[in-house]
């Protein structure tokens, strides 16, 4: 090979890749409007993005998988912790993470900014991004959920537990929320009857309970979920 041929390799290699890349960039711009629902990109959402950047949230949390890896990804945060969950954590991180080994700073974010942040996260959560991250995917079941749902065919109580909001606070086998205690072996401490009572009125079993009464459950649902939990030993 001569130096001249080497030069042509350089020139053609660079140009072909650049032309492809710039062409696809133009096309990406055309398609992103639909993929990201740009029509719903309101001023409030943009204000939320500005707040997100003002407080440098992104250097601890990833969003769409980019940023610091110190705290959970925020792409689907609305789905995971709910709007109120976001408000509480941003407003009172010192309370929300009092028992956590990792803390989040109290940055005195204003009410208005918090509402914009919520709007921003709602918008980000709707981006059609190839169903990432896997742990928040609605289409696919994680291995742990698959294991749980195998049980659900035997026990309708497990299905209630998963679908009626218990898991927003409690976890089973590492899946679920961290606000309430882990229930992996709850059957060792409480009987099914006590659990049923607890669900109806937590304070009647434990005067210090912080859990709100679960009035949304039907009698049947309460009965099933109590039986399911009572058997976890």
């Amino acid at each position: 090979m001569t130096k001249k041929i080497a030069f042509w390799i350089f020139l053609l290699g660079t140009l072909s890749s650049a032309v492809l890349f710039l062409g696809l960039t133009v096309d990406t711009h055309r398609q992103v409007a639909a993929l990201s629902h740009a029509d719903k990109l309101s001023e409030n959402v943009v204000a939320g993005k500005r707040a997100f950047e003002k407080y440098n949230c992104n250097d601890c949390h990833t969003i769409l998988g980019f940023g610091g890896y110190y705290a959970p990804d925020l792409t689907k945060v609305v789905q995971r912790v709910g709007e109120d969950g976001i408000r509480y954590r941003v407003k009172h991180p010192e309370l929300a993470f009092a028992n956590s080994v990792r803390k989040m700073p109290q940055q005195h974010v204003s009410e208005v900014e918090i509402e914009s942040l919520v709007a921003f996260f709602n918008w980000v959560g709707e981006i059609d991004n190839g169903d990432w991250p896997p742990q928040d995917s609605k289409k696919r079941l994680s291995r742990s959920e698959q294991r749980l749902s195998l049980g659900a065919t035997v026990s309708p109580g497990a299905a209630v537990f998963q679908t009626k909001g218990c898991m927003n606070c409690h976890s089973l086998h590492g899946v679920g929320g961290t606000f309430g205690p882990v229930l992996d072996t709850i059957g060792r401490t409480l009987t099914s009857e006590q659990i049923e009572q607890y669900i109806l009125n937590p304070k009647s079993v434990n005067p210090n309970a912080k859990m709100p009464p679960q009035n949304g459950l039907s009698d049947r649902e309460r009965d099933e979920v109590a039986k399911f939990l009572g058997n976890l030993k």
Binding site: R102, P134, S171, G174, G177
Partner: peptide, 11 residues
Amino acid sequence: LERVLGMGYMT
């Protein structure tokens, strides 16, 4: 743990 098993982030 987090992405395949679906464990919570902090766990």
